[in-house]
């Protein structure tokens, strides 16, 4: 297993252009995220104070759900078009390849959500002083979601219409990031939430890639 940078950056670039060319890569999660956020005032009433108070937490929920919209395709496409076979035999660590693909996927489908959060926060009346530190949390939590979601997606890569299955597998793994993330939104950067969120992200960075690698080898079999 060599870990030279060229295969990783190639995998990264291929995943970026694939997600970009897929068209829906960028817009689908954004639309879903914004749409979910739009439903919040309708479902919870027009109490401005309530919306402002629960806004950051509700955004976490929307983020968690939106992160799952495109997960199904991350590895399934590679399995179906045969690229996965080639990656596994490339002699490079499939775990690292999977991690760099996941990161590319987050850049295309996850980061835009983070950038959109202040706008939705503004719509819900959340004070901007709260939203900015919360954005850091959304970014870190988003990566964590994509990593665990990636494990679920890799495990379910060989399953047709795996969307719901991926959600059922991944949701329990989302719990820590959501809890820590909401703490960050509540307490700002000085609270106990940020180090915990950072730790859970690092933990996901360490554990999820090998699990994705093993799952992808299985999917290719």
């Amino acid at each position: 297993m060599k870990a030279s940078p060229a295969p990783l950056s190639s995998a990264f670039r291929q995943a970026l252009s694939e997600a970009w060319a897929g068209g829906s890569g960028l817009l689908l999660p954004l639309g879903f995220f914004a749409g979910t956020a739009m439903l919040i005032p309708f479902s919870l009433g027009s109490d401005a104070e309530l919306l402002a108070r629960i806004g950051p937490g509700v955004l976490w929920l929307a983020l968690a759900l939106a992160s799952m919209v495109t997960l199904e395709r991350v590895f399934q496409a590679d399995l179906q078009d045969g690229a996965l076979d080639l990656w596994i035999q490339s002699g490079d660590s499939i775990s690292l390849i999977a991690a760099s693909k996941t990161f590319a996927h987050w850049l295309i489908s996850g980061l835009p959500l983070v950038i959109l959060t202040p706008a939705i926060g503004y719509m819900l009346g959340v004070p901007m002083s709260e939203m900015l530190p919360a954005m850091l949390g959304y970014a870190m939590g988003g990566i964590t979601f994509f990593l665990w979601g990636g494990v679920a997606a890799a495990l379910a890569a060989s399953v047709a219409r795996a969307g719901l299955l991926i959600a059922v597998i991944a949701l329990p793994f989302y719990v820590p990031a959501i809890i820590f993330g909401v703490r960050v939104a509540e307490e700002g950067l000085n609270g106990v939430g940020l180090p915990f969120l950072g730790a859970s992200m690092l933990f996901a960075l360490g554990v999820a890639p090998p699990a994705m690698g093993a799952a992808l080898r299985l999917a290719a079999e």
């Binding site: 494990v151 495990l155 597998i169 329990p172 793994f173 719990v175 820590p176 809890i179 820590f180 703490r183 106990v192 915990f196 859970s200 933990f203 554990v207 999820a208 699990a211 093993a214 799952a215 299985l218």
Partner: peptide, 19 residues
């Protein structure tokens, strides 16, 4: 794979739910 990944996540879930 899922069960093993799940087990090492259980303590973290526990800590987070306690928090």
């Amino acid at each position: 794979i899922l069960a093993m990944v799940g087990l090492i996540n259980v303590p973290i879930i526990k800590v987070s739910v306690d928090l």
